[in-house]
Amino acid sequence: MRPVVRNLVGLAAFLVLWEGVARLGLVRQEDLPPASVVLEQTFGLLGNESFLRDVIASVLAWAIALGLAIVIAVPSGLLLGSLPGLRVATRAVVEFLRPIPSVALIPLVILVVGGGPESKIALATYAAVWPILYNAIYAFDEIDPLLIDTARSCGVSRARILASVALPHAAPFVFTGIRMSAAIGLIVVVSVEFIAGAASGIGQFILEATSGAGRMDLVLAGTIVAGLLGYLINEGLERLGRRMFRWHTVSTAEAM
């Protein structure tokens, strides 16, 4: 309970500071509306049907992108992790592609797949592939040969070792990658909506509030919802991971 209380105290202090800065006129209220106003707008938005549609559009794009990234990255990671030759052969390509920021690919993607929701899904998938791929390669490469020998000496065929030893061993590492990718994917979805424009989405809502009316309170309210979403996703995945992979956290902590 203690850390929760401390977090809440920190949050409250931040809001009070924000409110004070805005109310005392240290910055123009059009630039930074007081916290109370923004929070009120946020609650208002949560009951607003068209805004909720934007949220659903973003979340849907995010979920599809994350799913695609998992489907692409896990088998690739398995291949690259277990075949060092292939890993060396593809290293140059991977190291070239990985640092390219997704937003830099927006023009290319819009040209190739068009301006619909496919473009944000494609870019978020691209960005989300890397953490999962890296963790999967590491996990499949690091597997203890004694564990494989143990399985083989139990009469398990090589194909079944994949399912019964390699996958369970790699699962917690892959899951860590998925958690990182989940956060990155959401950022990319909202950024692409904001930068490239979209039919709907949180980023599109923020873009509209900025460019048309210059409604800073709505911009910040939309940002808070996006942040909240990211927080909830991460928190949910973290809890899920702790429950599913208790053996991993405990046994690696003990090994150290």
Binding site: L146, L147, D149, T150, V165, P168, A171, F245, W247
Partner: peptide
């Protein structure tokens, strides 16, 4: 033994 038992 610690490396040959499946921790999961």
């Amino acid at each position: 033994y610690s490396r040959s038992l499946f921790p999961w």
